[in-house]
């Protein structure tokens, strides 16, 4: 008897580390070739990031946008997980409210934002509510599929061994749903910050979107790219320091991880 062997990581695993430098190099080359004031090099943009962070309000703006995105993310994920669980588990609830979810999925984000602003004013609450309304249906649909895909065999196993309800939830159901939760979280993060930025352009008193709107009016491409790069850096940090570690922790048992 022998435990299945795991493949060594190899050179392919290290390729990921070249990805970002390669992108920056490509950008640098293109900027040098194009040689236009509206196409700055990454070095110029990084210098602008430093200037905006030390002399202007970049850090405060990024913080403001991040906090809005974080609050909307937590609310949208919580609501989506609960609703998706209910719709996946109870067919009648899904039949009754499935169309609502479909509408929520397809209604343009800009319409939701404008409507919320008109009804509730240009407030923090309106912005976050609009983001939640846009994001929650996507989480709901993902989680509904997750609940529908729960393995009945494990349910039977739990019934045979009379596993109590909460232990069943914790040890049998949650691990099966975690891939769906992480998928919803990852797509959620990418979608939410984009929506938050658009809504900040439409109406807010600060934040990355608000500032990019001002840069746009002045045709300040370096400022736009500096803010974008800063936020990208935050997103990449979240991906590598939070999402990947979380993924490895809760999905480490999956064949893709075992053989990685």
């Amino acid at each position: 008897m022998e435990r299945r062997k795991q493949k060594p990581p190899g050179v392919a695993g290290g390729l990921e580390w070249f990805s970002l430098p390669l992108l920056l190099l490509l950008w640098q080359v293109l900027a040098v070739v194009v040689d236009h004031r509206l196409f700055p090099t990454p070095i110029e943009v990084i210098a602008e990031v430093w200037f905006l962070a030390t002399e202007r309000s970049l850090l405060a703006d990024v913080g403001k946008t991040l906090s809005r995105a974080a609050i909307a993310f937590v609310i949208a994920m919580t609501a989506g997980i609960v609703l998706g669980g209910v719709f996946g588990r109870f067919r009648n609830a899904d039949r009754l409210f499935g169309t609502w979810v479909l509408i929520g999925l397809n209604i343009p984000a800009i319409v939701v934002a404008i409507t919320c602003y008109i009804w509730l004013g240009l407030t923090e609450f309106a912005l976050i509510l609009a983001v939640v309304i846009n994001k929650a249906p996507l989480v709901t649909v993902t989680m509904r599929e997750g609940v529908r895909a729960l393995d009945h065999g494990y349910g039977e196993l739990a019934r045979v061994y009379r596993v109590p309800f909460w232990r069943r939830v914790r040890r049998f159901i949650v691990p099966q749903l975690m891939p769906y939760v992480l998928t919803a979280a990852r797509t959620g993060l990418s979608l939410i910050w984009k929506i938050v930025l658009v809504f900040e352009v439409l109406g807010s008193d600060g934040g990355v979107g608000f500032r990019i709107g001002i840069f746009f009016q002045n045709f300040d491409i370096e400022g736009i790219l500096a803010y974008t790069m800063s936020f990208m850096a935050v997103v990449i940090l979240i991906e590598y320091l939070v999402m990947r570690k979380l993924e490895a922790k809760v999905l480490g048992w999956r064949p893709a991880f075992l053989s990685a």
């Binding site: 065999g153 494990y154 039977e156 196993l157 045979v160 061994y161 009379r162 040890r171 049998f172 691990p175 048992w253 999956r254």
Partner: peptide, 14 residues
């Protein structure tokens, strides 16, 4: 509770 062995091992992979 009886001990029950299914047709497949049905182990929780996590």
């Amino acid at each position: 509770v009886p001990g029950f062995v299914f047709q497949d091992p049905r182990l929780l992979p996590w």
